[in-house]
Amino acid sequence: MNESVIIAAGGTGGHISPGVALAEILVEKKEHFHVSDVYIHSLLRNQNNPDLQNAPCEVLWHNVPQFRGLSIPIYPILFLIQFIKTILTFRKRKVTAVIGMGGYSSFPAILYAILFRKKLFLCEQNCIPGKITRYFAKYAEKLALSFPIKNSLAVPVETKIIGNPIRKKVVPESLNIRQNENLHDSRKNTVNVLVLGGSQGARQLNNMILKTMENSEISQKFRFRVLTGTSLYDETVKKAKGPAEIISYANDMRPNYEWANLVVARSGAGVIAECLVFGLPMVLIPYPYAADNHQKENAEYVEKEGAAYTIQSTSEDPSPLVKYLLDWKSNPEELKTMGQNSLRLSNVNAAYQTVSYFFSH
Score class of each variant (00 low, 15 high):
A260W: 00
Y135S: 14
I177R: 14
K85G: 03
I285Y: 10
C123R: 09
L262T: 08
P148S: 01
N164G: 10
K336H: 12
L335V: 06
Q340W: 06
H32P: 00
A202S: 15
S319W: 04
G14L: 07
E245R: 03
N256M: 13
L321P: 10
A137G: 03
G13H: 06
L153A: 08
Y357S: 08
K29E: 14
E217M: 12
G339V: 11
S267I: 09
Q66K: 15
C127M: 09
V302K: 01
P281C: 08
S248N: 04
T236F: 02
Q47R: 14
F222C: 04
A290R: 04
L88A: 10
A109L: 03
V59C: 01
I16N: 05
I132A: 00
K92Y: 07
V171M: 13
F90N: 04
Y301W: 12
S216L: 13
A351I: 12
T314C: 02
K94H: 11
E235W: 07
V95E: 01
L111S: 04
A21Q: 04
F79C: 07
T86H: 00
V157Y: 01
I99N: 06
K304V: 05
K239I: 13
S216M: 11
L175Q: 14
P288V: 12
A202E: 00
L345Y: 01
A265K: 01
F33K: 09
L232T: 03
P318T: 09
M253I: 04
Y324T: 12
L232W: 00
L115Y: 02
I311S: 01
K304R: 11
D252T: 14
L326K: 13
D185R: 06
K160R: 13
T337C: 11
K169F: 02
P172T: 08
S17T: 15
F278T: 10
F147D: 00
L22P: 00
E31S: 13
L325W: 08
A291V: 15
S313L: 10
I87G: 05
A269D: 07
P286H: 03
N256G: 02
N189C: 05
L321D: 04
A21E: 01
S319H: 13
G11H: 11
I6T: 01
G229Q: 08
L145Q: 02
E3I: 02
I162C: 06
N251V: 12
L60N: 09
N207A: 11
Q125C: 05
M338K: 11
N49E: 03
D51F: 13
K188C: 03
I218S: 04
I40F: 02
E305I: 11
I285V: 15
P108H: 02
Q204H: 02
H62Y: 07
